[in-house]
Simulated assay, not measured.
Amino acid sequence: MVEDRTFGGRLFSIVNFALLAVIALVTVLPFVHVVAGSFTTNAEIAAKKFILVPTVWSTEAYRFIFSTPTIFRAMAVSIGVTLVGTLFSMLITSLMAYGLSRRDLDGRGGLMFLVVFTMLFSGGMIPTFLVVKELGLIDTYAALILPSAITAFNMIILKNFFQNIPEGLEESAKIDGCHDFGILFRIVLPLSMPAIATISLFYAVTYWNTYMNAILYLNKSEMWPIQVLLRQIVVLASGMDYSSNLDSAVPPPEQSVKMAVIVVATLPILLVYPFLQKHFAKGAMLGSIKG
């Protein structure tokens, strides 16, 4: 019986490894194709369709994208909006999550109902636009941050994580004379780094991928974030009707530019993710255990 069980265990490990290897290849190969396609010529893309290693290496796509200083201004805008927006979102999300995690909070059930209600129903695009306009946020970077400053899903995950922290720690802090803000910033947040890292990554990806808000609220092209500008670059490379402040003198290679745009838009988040990955699964799982 022991030998049969050992053989079955080894067979399971082999099959499991093979299956995971296939899944990994299916996941990674498309991205490798995009990166390889961004470093090759249009002729090779048209001839081979699927490329893993370019026969002729070319940087024309990246030279076209970075041939104008507009791309660096847009990159700076996206980085600034992502950093400021993530910090602001984490601040107000932490404050609200901590308050709702307190079981002695009066009206806690009603407030949670209002939060969950926003997950099921929203005002829609037009009412949101009217609110942003009446607040005077059109053509301001605040329009990219305030409408999406807090997400009910992220707040609930953080609230549930806070509820897992032993109440004895807070009671001990109160005995030592610590007020509520002191408890939050000195005890609760330092003990919640896995959840903080997870929610921060969620917000950072949201702000970095800001596109629709920029299209709706920013009329000045010099204020565009990187996602909007990259879309305009793809339009230009496709030979469509186009008017912008791009003054590139490099001819656009259409297909490789599309792939290079994907790489430029994705690479910053990919560089940040490894530093938060170890907290990601733990934070998301612990925050979803209790309601």
Rank of each mutant, 00 (worst) to 15 (best):
S122E: 05
P30W: 07
N154T: 05
A197L: 07
L29R: 10
H279L: 01
V2S: 13
L216Q: 15
K174Y: 08
L218H: 01
I65A: 03
V263Y: 03
I150P: 01
H33S: 14
A204Q: 12
A195I: 10
F72W: 11
V116R: 08
S248F: 01
F161T: 03
A281E: 09
L270D: 08
V205G: 02
V228F: 05
A43G: 06
L229R: 08
I199K: 07
N213Y: 14
L270I: 06
L135I: 06
I71S: 10
W208H: 03
L137H: 04
L137A: 02
R186Q: 09
K278F: 00
L114W: 13
E171H: 12
N164P: 00
V235L: 15
I65E: 03
L270P: 03
Y242H: 15
V34L: 09
V235M: 15
I71P: 00
S221H: 07
V84P: 07
P166Q: 14
I165Y: 04
V272R: 11
P166W: 09
T68E: 13
Y217D: 02
D139P: 02
K174L: 08
F66M: 14
K290Y: 00
P190H: 07
I183R: 12
T151Q: 13
Y62N: 05
I71V: 15
Q255P: 00
A195F: 00
V35H: 08
G182S: 12
V15G: 07
K220C: 01
I165R: 06
L111F: 02
A97S: 12
L158A: 07
T82A: 14
E171G: 12
W224C: 05
D104I: 09
Y211K: 11
F39S: 03
I65M: 08
G182M: 06
I157L: 15
S67Q: 07
V235K: 15
F121Q: 10
V257P: 06
G287H: 01
T128A: 11
I262N: 00
S172V: 03
F66R: 12
L19H: 05
S172C: 10
R10F: 12
L83T: 14
P251W: 06
P69S: 08
I165V: 15
N213Q: 14
V32Y: 10
M193E: 06
V272I: 15
F39K: 02
L114D: 02
N213S: 15
I183T: 06
G168I: 01
F117D: 07
V228K: 14
T70M: 15
F39P: 00
G99S: 15
W57T: 10
T266M: 10
G110H: 06
P30G: 09
S67I: 02
F72M: 13
M155F: 01
F162D: 04
I138F: 11
G182V: 10
S78W: 04
A195E: 01
P252M: 07
G9C: 01
M155H: 02
G85T: 11
F39Y: 12
A197P: 06
I138C: 05
L246M: 13
E44G: 02
L201T: 03
A143E: 03
I226N: 08
M155D: 03
L120D: 04
K258V: 08
